[in-house]
Design a binder for these strands. Structure first.
Lengths: 189, 189, 189, 189
DNA sequence: TATGAATGAGCTTTCATTCAT
DNA sequence: CATGAATGAAAGCTCATTCAT
């Protein structure tokens, strides 16, 4: 199936970690799902902890690349910036819902190392900057930045958790409406 | 310390499950934290899975009791109802942050049984009804109900996750502002 | 059989390490021989390496106690001192041949830690002192002390290795003769 | 480096087996030290056990060749014969200390096969014959032959173990003296 | 012929669970 | 009732061996 074994392992691990968590996923489960021998995993990753961190960092990397935050002109209209970011968030969720939920549920776990944690914080920092920029320009509410993130990112994450669980149908119209709602939550009326 | 051993075990399990997850927490860890013998846990719970489900149901129960949804008059002003619920959510988070985060991170786990899942869904149903009521009365946006829940409850949960992580300072003013934001997200302008 | 499990484990490990070496002995083998569960071994020893070092130190301890070097009067006749030590060496070999051969074959292995190594060196030091004393008094040859030890202890160890292998019959007469031979090897004619 | 891969493998294996024992040495370790691929080892040896036996037999062979026992005239002076053998033992130790210690520590191991064991016994037999010859001629003590071997060969082996460990300095004078000591141990006074 | 990626049997170790005290 | 020593099934991991290249 998969020509690159390392990727097959990461893919299998992502699906399983997202579904069963780190400690609830055994190495044989990953090997089985990835269609490789259990020993093969150790040719690519020193141990299970190294694997979960490599995976975490890869997911964060993909998330960053999808957001393409550097393409945003900070001087452009705030609502447009918000629209751009929200579109990208949705794109990432659509492309790699496992990665999104994996990052969200593992970012503060005890087995996540300093490098991984820093990568994640770097990602969040870009969102924080946009919020700060909006606050500075008097367009976004003067709340603590992380509260603003909770309002938008928290809502976004739960939205896709519910979609993933089959409790909610994804549609362009709904997502457009939710974007508007999130913006209403943080903008100054 | 704790006169009631069953409660001591549940309390210890809650703290540990919240911190390390279900599979990352060992029974001896729980016994140690609860200051009881490992064997004692099996006098109160058939096994680890029974324990986690009993705990989950207890947390959901406490959450329900805190919300006191039955006190709300469905015919009263929607904004007032929302205010009441939001206050109660905050009260629960303040009283038992571990329980809130435990429910949130474990509600769809593989070891959560049907009874537990139903209890959780019952809880969510009350929130759903309020949203539905608001939609029926033309005060709240006509989005799928679960999308509305994501907007409010998703934001709320992440807010307290960040507070718990020490990234955000909790204050009356901030919470009042966040409540207003959540309301702005779902109300019809 | 064995009332004390820790001792049963050490006894089983000694026999197996002596026969098959450290890496050639598996923990299940030890558990099986000691008639305990594999997990039980880890209640008494942190890991296999801790076990082998605890065993080594215990063997050295027993060896030291058997030699009772402190009972020797350094001013007494050198030949009498030699006789006393040789008798004690034989006693140890007769009582605990496994321990003797285990010490001999493992004392410089890579898994033997500093504490164990020091314990062994302490033991050898007592033999070295006796040799030195004999040299000082002009009774024993003026060779490097470790060469004298090789002459006596090397011969002694191989003697019991051959006895243990069934290639040589142990008898009072033979041992008396060997003692005489060892003395002849090191004394000044 | 090494033109002959088979020899490179045997050389690497000898050094590693001497240092870490058979079970403590992995095939990749040997491959790495010999600068060949792991698979290459299996082109020259059926498996690890075949390899260790081939190595053992080669070491015994070299030992035999160094001793050149056939050059000894059994009717010549006993002390001269002893001197000749001792010289040869030292030569072997100087030339190939690893081989000497490897033979000594592995000759009764569980993975040593019948052929290897016989080769070793053949080697020892030559020493035994010399001792027997000396006993017959009334020059060497009437002890069991293997006890005589223990006296000489046991001392000799430990001497070089200590030299190898850096605890003892090798010198012509010392070796001459040790030879004399060994002779004194077994000769009839 | 030479290789080293891949494998799975089997190793060391952990931990949910039991039971004698 | 309460305990924690004991257990063995199953986890994480290693390594002798194979085989496609």
């Amino acid at each position: 199936m998969e020509t690159n074994k390392r990727d097959a392992i990461l893919k299998a691990a992502l699906a399983l970690f997202a579904k069963r968590g780190y400690d609830g996923t055994t190495v044989p489960m990953i090997a089985n799902t990835a269609q490789v021998g259990a020993g093969t995993i150790y040719r690519y990753f020193e141990n299970k902890e190294t694997l979960v961190n490599a995976l975490f960092q890869q997911c964060v990397q993909e998330f960053s690349e999808t957001l393409k935050f550097e393409e945003i002109d900070p001087s452009s209209d705030m609502r447009d910036q918000f629209h751009y970011i929200f579109k990208r968030l949705i794109k990432f969720a659509d492309t790699n819902i496992h990665a999104l939920l994996f990052i969200e549920s593992h970012n503060s776990a005890y087995y996540i190392d300093v490098t991984s944690r820093k990568a994640f914080q770097g990602l969040m920092e870009t969102l924080r900057q946009m919020m700060q920029n909006g606050k500075d320009r008097g367009v976004i509410k003067d709340l603590q930045t992380d509260a603003l993130i909770a309002l938008v990112y928290g809502a976004f994450v739960m939205l896709f958790k519910l979609i993933q669980a089959g409790l909610l149908d994804e549609s362009e119209a709904m997502l457009k409406e939710v974007e508007e709602s999130c913006w209403n939550a943080i903008k100054i009326l």
